[in-house]
Amino acid sequence: MSGNGNAAATAEENSPKMRVIRVGTRKSQLARIQTDSVVATLKASYPGLQFEIIAMSTTGDKILDTALSKIGEKSLFTKELEHALEKNEVDLVVHSLKDLPTVLPPGFTIGAICKRENPHDAVVFHPKFVGKTLETLPEKSVVGTSSLRRAAQLQRKFPHLEFRSIRGNLNTRLRKLDEQQEFSAIILATAGLQRMGWHNRVGQILHPEECMYAVGQGALGVEVRAKDQDILDLVGVLHDPETLLRCIAERAFLRHLEGGCSVPVAVHTAMKDGQLYLTGGVWSLDGSDSIQETMQATIHVPAQHEDGPEDDPQLVGITARNIPRGPQLAAQNLGISLANLLLSKGAKNILDVARQLNDAH
């Protein structure tokens, strides 16, 4: 009898209710805020589980004197976190989706994509230029951005401005803007500013005609071990179906173009009346040469937790077992079709030249 009692006690200790789920994140304040929001949602869904947040620095956090596009290494903000995932030191990792490459290392998958916040870019102005827009900034004003995508589009749109690289986390960039006289304004992701509670610093939100956004911008991705079915089931509740389908289309477009950090590629997606609209573009580094096109596809946005595919093969690095396969494939095909259209119009040449120029500098 006593033996059975011990077995029952052991089973209770090993039951999922007692389990601590370890969540990996970057150390920056924004990353911690984003991770806290994901953990809060998981806690609400699984009140019996405990969650421990483990923060670590990544290569991208450490190399702050070089433009991201020049470092010449993929997975700048993800490699150390993936290493911890691989060694079973954490069970899942919360990322900004735009930091996750469209091809993940073997053994990993994006197990959830959370509801997207505003994906557009924002302009934050130096205190002396508050009330201005990019259009009304004085001639030769210097605007800071760490992104080739932003610089290429904005140089084309605002030729009277000069664009220079600015690195560091959000706090560091804002301090550089406010305390030094080098920059009249800087460009940042609206979602990051909003998550930090800095709505009052948003001086201008850039519309798609001015600057399309990065693939996955404004959404959070939760990376897990691809074979860890328990954790895949656990994080599945975080999937937002519309965000998922938009981001599958965007990531398929980028992957098929073979774009990345070192080339200016941008997108804009919208879901309306059962249609998914995808606009994508590529630019030369100075913005003088560009190709942009829009395509659409009829896609039914499923309700969360309709029964999805059981075999769960990944699409552009994403596993969404609780979302039907048909809409996911339709979104992926839309991204591939748009990429093929741009490639047929000469996108590869623009991107190759951009890559060579970026590598040469």
Score class of each variant (00 low, 15 high):
I21Q: 01
I21V: 13
R22K: 13
R22A: 10
V23W: 01
G24V: 08
T25I: 05
R26Q: 01
R26C: 01
R26F: 01
R26K: 01
K27T: 09
S28Y: 01
Q29R: 13
Q29N: 15
A31N: 01
R32V: 09
I33K: 01
I33Q: 08
D36K: 14
S37D: 05
V38L: 08
V39T: 08
T41S: 13
K43Y: 08
S45A: 12
S45R: 11
Y46W: 13
P47Y: 06
G48L: 13
L49E: 01
L49D: 08
F51Y: 08
E52S: 11
E52K: 05
E52D: 11
E52P: 07
M56F: 15
M56A: 12
T59R: 08
G60M: 01
G60D: 04
D61E: 14
I63H: 06
L64F: 09
L64E: 01
D65M: 04
D65A: 07
T66E: 14
A67R: 14
S69T: 09
K70T: 08
G72M: 09
G72S: 13
G72Y: 10
E73F: 06
K74F: 08
S75C: 15
S75A: 13
K79E: 12
E80C: 11
E80P: 08
H83T: 13
A84K: 08
L85D: 01
L85C: 11
K87A: 12
E89F: 12
V94G: 04
H95W: 01
L97Y: 01
L97N: 04
L97Q: 01
L100Q: 09
P101I: 10
V103H: 01
V103E: 09
V103F: 09
G107Y: 01
F108C: 10
F108W: 14
F108A: 01
G111P: 01
G111R: 03
G111A: 05
G111I: 01
A112M: 01
A112W: 01
I113R: 01
I113K: 01
I113P: 01
C114Q: 12
K115P: 13
R116M: 03
E117H: 11
N118A: 14
P119L: 03
H120P: 04
H120Y: 13
D121W: 01
D121F: 01
D121M: 01
D121Q: 01
D121G: 04
A122L: 05
F125T: 04
H126T: 08
L134M: 10
E135T: 11
E135W: 11
E135C: 09
L137C: 06
L137N: 04
P138G: 08
P138A: 13
E139K: 15
E139P: 01
K140N: 11
K140I: 07
K140E: 14
S141G: 11
S141F: 08
S141P: 04
V142H: 10
V143I: 13
G144Q: 01
G144K: 08
T145C: 05
T145K: 01
S146M: 06
S146V: 08
S146T: 08
S147Y: 01
S147T: 05
S147P: 01
R149G: 01
R149W: 03
R150Q: 01
R150P: 03
R150L: 01
A151E: 01
A152Y: 09
Q153L: 07
L154H: 09
Q155K: 13
Q155P: 10
R156N: 12
R156A: 14
R156Y: 06
K157Y: 12
K157V: 10
K157I: 10
F158E: 04
F158S: 09
P159Q: 10
L161C: 12
L161V: 07
E162R: 12
R164Y: 07
R164D: 12
R164K: 12
S165C: 12
N169A: 06
L170R: 01
T172L: 11
R173W: 01
R173Q: 01
R173H: 03
R173K: 04
L174N: 04
L174G: 04
L174F: 14
R175M: 13
K176R: 11
L177E: 01
E179T: 11
I186D: 04
I187N: 05
L188C: 11
A189K: 05
A189V: 01
A189T: 05
T190F: 01
G192Q: 01
Q194T: 04
Q194E: 06
Q194I: 01
R195Q: 04
G197A: 04
G197L: 04
W198A: 13
H199E: 10
N200D: 14
R201Y: 15
R201G: 08
R201F: 05
V202P: 15
G203H: 01
Q204H: 12
Q204L: 14
I205W: 01
L206D: 05
H207L: 11
P208F: 14
P208Q: 10
E209F: 15
E210Y: 05
E210A: 07
E210S: 05
E210H: 01
C211W: 07
Y213K: 01
V215Y: 01
G216H: 01
Q217S: 09
G218N: 01
A219V: 13
G221S: 07
V222W: 01
V222P: 01
E223G: 07
V224F: 14
D228R: 13
D228S: 08
Q229Y: 14
Q229D: 13
Q229H: 11
Q229F: 13
D230I: 15
I231D: 12
L232K: 13
L232I: 14
D233Q: 09
L234W: 11
G236A: 14
G236R: 13
V237M: 08
H239S: 12
H239A: 12
D240M: 04
E242C: 03
E242Y: 01
E242F: 15
T243C: 01
L244A: 04
L245C: 11
L245M: 14
R246E: 01
I248N: 06
I248M: 05
R251E: 03
A252N: 01
F253W: 04
L254A: 01
H256A: 15
E258C: 15
G259R: 06
G260W: 05
C261G: 04
C261A: 01
P264M: 01
P264W: 03
V265G: 04
A266T: 07
A266G: 04
V267Y: 01
H268F: 13
H268Q: 14
T269K: 01
A270W: 07
K272Y: 01
Q275A: 01
L276P: 01
Y277E: 03
L278V: 06
L278T: 06
L278A: 05
L278K: 01
T279P: 03
T279A: 13
T279F: 09
G280K: 09
V282I: 06
V282F: 09
S284G: 11
D286C: 07
D286Q: 11
G287K: 01
S290D: 06
I291K: 13
E293S: 12
E293A: 11
E293Q: 14
T294K: 03
T294I: 13
M295Q: 05
M295A: 12
M295R: 14
M295C: 04
Q296T: 05
Q296G: 12
A297D: 11
I299S: 06
I299M: 15
V301F: 13
V301N: 01
Q304M: 06
H305T: 01
H305Y: 15
D307L: 01
G308V: 13
P309F: 14
P309S: 10
P309R: 11
D311C: 01
D311F: 03
D312E: 10
D312K: 01
P313L: 12
P313Y: 15
L315T: 03
I318S: 11
T319G: 07
A320H: 01
A320F: 03
R321G: 13
N322R: 13
N322E: 13
I323Y: 10
I323T: 08
P324M: 03
P324G: 06
R325W: 13
R325S: 09
G326R: 08
G326F: 01
A330I: 01
A331V: 05
N333S: 01
G335K: 03
G335R: 01
G335S: 01
I336C: 01
I336T: 01
L338M: 12
L338I: 03
A339E: 01
L341I: 01
L342G: 06
L342V: 15
L342D: 01
L343H: 14
L343E: 07
L343R: 14
S344H: 15
S344E: 13
K345C: 05
G346R: 11
G346A: 05
G346P: 01
A347Q: 14
N349V: 10
N349E: 09
L351A: 01
D352L: 12
V353R: 06
V353M: 14
A354Y: 01
R355T: 05
Q356I: 01
Q356N: 15
A360S: 11
A360T: 13
